[in-house]
């Protein structure tokens, strides 16, 4: 499904990604973890075509994607910072994305799920951080793409919305989707994900299931296991 081979990227002298190899063949929720500056966001952005790698290859369903654009109809992306044009209303931004992605049908269900109906005609500048993040989530999940990439999806969410997000992720997984998620909240990852890629200094330091990692480090929680890896 998604295959990354020998991916390298540097910004000036800083080598952010060094020979990354990832092969995801099945559906499920995959977590990309790592300390700040380990290259998680850069890795995600190369898959989306936002960052152009120095060399290496990325294929989705056996098709090379670097310097292409049409493949992005297969991917939904939730960016880390939800910052929208301030003078547009929520409904206008939803319609803009619907216009760009023709097969978008799920917006109404998601608007109900996250309770943002009253905010639909408000300008985005007047929304709170949490509501903006909910709009961000609606924008991501409303198109039924087989691959979903989430960069810190929990930021700013209240506990109820967080539970809704977890349920949504599990439902999407059961639909047969491939979901890639980064987060610093280990309890969240442990609850939703099974497989992890742990990045350190631009390399994949660990790749396997959460259980494998716990056994290897002899720790009881993912948080402690990660801390143990970094020692």
């Amino acid at each position: 499904m998604l295959s990354i081979t020998n991916l390298n990227k540097s910004f000036g002298k800083l080598e952010v990604l060094q020979g990354i190899n990832i092969n995801i063949v099945k559906q499920g929720i995959f977590a990309i973890l790592g300390p700040n500056g380990s290259g998680k966001t850069t890795l995600i952005k190369t898959i989306l075509g936002l960052v152009i790698p120095d060399f290496g290859s990325i294929t989705i369903n056996d098709k090379e994607i670097i310097n292409r654009w049409a493949y992005r109809s297969e991917i939904s992306y939730l960016p880390q910072i939800a910052n929208f044009p301030s003078n547009l209303t929520v409904i206008e931004i939803i319609n803009l994305i619907k216009n760009i992605r023709p097969n978008t049908k799920l917006d109404k269900d998601l608007i109900d799920l996250f309770n943002i109906k009253e905010s639909m005609n408000k300008k985005l500048v007047d929304l709170s951080g949490g509501t903006k993040q909910k709009v961000n989530i609606v924008l991501t999940f409303m198109s039924d793409s087989p691959i979903i990439i989430l960069d810190e999806p929990t930021a700013g969410l209240d506990p109820i919305s967080l539970i809704k997000l977890k349920d949504l992720l599990i439902r999407e997984k059961e639909k047969g989707k491939t979901i890639i998620v980064t987060s610093h909240i280990m309890s969240f990852i442990e609850e939703i994900s099974h497989d992890i890629f742990f990045l350190l200094d631009g390399k994949i330091f660990f790749n396997g299931t959460i259980e494998d990692l716990k056994v290897r480090t002899n720790e009881s929680t993912l948080e402690r296991a990660i801390a143990n890896l970094l020692k």
Partner: peptide
């Protein structure tokens, strides 16, 4: 001011 939104747009299926 629209930098983050541009990132979101660039992740969509458009050139």
């Amino acid at each position: 001011s629209s930098k983050e939104f541009v990132e979101l747009l660039l992740a969509q299926p458009i050139k």
